[in-house]
C-alpha cells in the first residue's frame, strides 16, 4: 500500500470513527430526542462507511457493485442532510413565537427559490465532458449542494440580523454542515465541468477533508463547555438611570 493510498484511507475512515464519540455523548446527554434526525444521520454515516470500506477492501465485490452501493448511500445522506437542516431551523425558531410561522414559510419558500436557482445554474453550466453518469451523479448533487449552502447561509444571516440566540449545539451543527456543503459544492462544480471521474483523487480528497473538518466542528461543539448564560440581575441604580435616560432620549429628541 502506497503512502498516499494509506493517507486517503485514513482520512476516509477517521472522521467516521470520530462520529462514534458524538453518538456516545448524544446518548449519554439524552440529546437523541432533541436531535433525532441528526442522530440517525450520524449513525447512518458510520454504517455506510463500514459497508463501503469493506466492499472497497474485499476482492469479492466488483467496482460496479461499489458504485451502486455508494450512489444509494449518497442519496440517503442527501435526504438526511435536508432533514438535519430542517431540524436546525426548528431549533432556532422554536423559542420565538413571533418567528415560528415565518420560520416555516422561510424554509419552504427559500427551498423553492433555491431549487429554481439551482436548476437554472445547472442548465446553463454544462461542461465539455458531460456524460450520462455525470448528469445523474454530479448535476443533481450540485443542485442539492446549492440549496443546502443557500439555506444554511440564509439561516446564519437571519440569526445574525435578528440577534437570535443559538440553542446548545445547534450552531456547531449548522457550521459543520455548512462547511461540508460548501466544499462539496466546489467539488461538484469541478466534476460537472471536467467530468465525474476526472481527477478523482483530488475530488475525493476534498470530500474526505471537508467531512473531517465538519465532524471535528461537531465534536468540538459537543466537548467544549457551554458558555455560562449572562443574566440581567436586578440592575444597580446607575444602570437603570442609563436605561431610562436612553429611553427618554429615544422618545423626546
Amino acid at each position: 500500500m502506497t503512502a498516499s493510498r494509506f493517507f486517503f484511507l485514513f482520512f476516509w475512515v477517521a472522521p467516521h470513527v470520530f462520529q462514534i464519540p458524538i453518538i456516545v455523548i448524544m446518548v449519554r446527554r439524552k440529546m437523541v430526542r432533541e436531535f433525532p434526525i441528526f442522530f440517525v444521520y450520524t449513525c447512518f454515516q458510520i454504517l455506510q462507511t463500514a459497508v463501503l470500506f469493506t466492499i472497497d477492501q474485499s476482492d469479492r465485490f466488483t467496482g460496479d457493485q461499489y458504485i451502486v452501493c455508494w450512489l444509494a448511500e449518497e442519496y440517503v445522506s442527501v435526504v438526511l442532510r435536508f432533514g438535519v437542516i430542517h431540524e436546525i431551523f426548528q431549533h432556532v425558531f422554536r423559542n420565538y413565537p413571533a418567528l415560528q410561522r415565518l420560520g416555516g414559510s422561510l424554509v419552504r419558500w427559500s427551498t423553492v427559490v433555491l431549487m429554481i436557482a439551482a436548476v437554472i445554474l445547472v442548465s446553463y453550466s454544462t461542461g465539455t465532458n458531460l456524460d450520462r453518469v455525470t448528469l445523474v451523479l454530479v448535476v443533481v448533487n450540485r443542485a442539492v449542494n446549492i440549496m443546502q449552502v443557500g439555506l444554511l447561509v440564509l439561516l446564519l444571516l437571519l440569526v445574525r440580523y435578528l440577534h437570535l440566540s443559538w440553542s446548545t449545539y445547534v450552531l456547531p451543527m449548522a457550521l459543520g454542515l455548512g462547511l461540508y456543503a460548501s466544499a462539496m459544492l466546489v467539488n461538484t462544480a469541478l466534476q460537472a465541468h471536467f467530468g465525474a471521474f476526472v481527477n478523482l483523487t483530488l475530488t475525493r480528497t476534498i470530500e474526505v477533508s471537508a467531512y473531517g473538518c465538519c465532524v471535528l466542528v461537531w465534536l468540538t461543539g459537543l466537548l467544549l463547555p457551554q458558555p455560562a448564560a449572562k443574566q440581567i440581575e436586578t440592575p444597580v441604580i446607575h444602570e437603570l438611570e442609563d436605561w431610562n435616560a436612553a429611553l427618554q432620549r429615544l422618545l423626546q429628541q
Binding site: 445554474l121 446553463y124 453550466s125 461542461g127 450540485r142 449542494n145 446549492i146 449552502v149 444554511l152 447561509v153 446564519l156 457550521l175 455548512g178 462547511l179 456543503a181 460548501s182 466544499a183 459544492l185 466546489v186 462544480a189 469541478l190 460537472a192 465541468h193
Partner: peptide, 16 residues
C-alpha cells in the same frame, strides 16, 4: 457559471 459557483462556494466556506 462554473467559476461563479466555485467562487460562491469558497465565499460561503469563508463565511462559515
Amino acid at each position: 457559471i462554473t467559476v461563479l459557483i466555485i467562487a460562491t462556494a469558497v465565499l460561503s466556506l469563508l463565511f462559515f
